[in-house]
Amino acid sequence: MKLHFEVPGDDFTRAGEASGELKRKLKRLGFDPDVVRRAAIAMYEGEINMVIHAGGGVVDVEILPDKITIILTDYGPGIEDVDKAMQEGFSTAPDNIRMLGFGAGMGLPNIKKYTDTLNIKTEVGKGTVLTMTVLTNKQA
């Protein structure tokens, strides 16, 4: 099953709508609650990042019995130093984002923590593509 979501870049209150939808869909499909939660949290952090840094983007999800693949694509400023961005506590988010409960430098580290693979393709000035997978521990 394939899903496609648009993440609007101008409305912080709507960030997470797509992840919530994915979560409900995975639950209905009967995936293990831990798998559902890991996929939803990882995508949610990705969505928040898109809204904070990149003016929104698109998310494509492929759901297979053994693996959930989530691809987040944006045309934002790109990540200058991926190693730094992967460190807990490193953030380039502006102060107004911290007032909203994010920007603690936990986004990418959380994504890495909850996914089984994470690939970051980024180019400064062009955008970023995050490809992440969550294994479902189910027989294919």
């Binding site: 952090e45 909203l100 409960g101 994010f102």
Partner: peptide, 26 residues
């Protein structure tokens, strides 16, 4: 800080916060 909440899954059932926006619910 919602990202700190998201960092530790332990079947926490109650969230106490001073932050009031939609992302708390999400």
């Amino acid at each position: 800080m919602m990202s700190d909440v998201l960092a530790f899954v332990k079947d926490q059932s109650v969230l106490l916060t001073g932050l009031v926006n939609a992302q708390v619910v999400r």
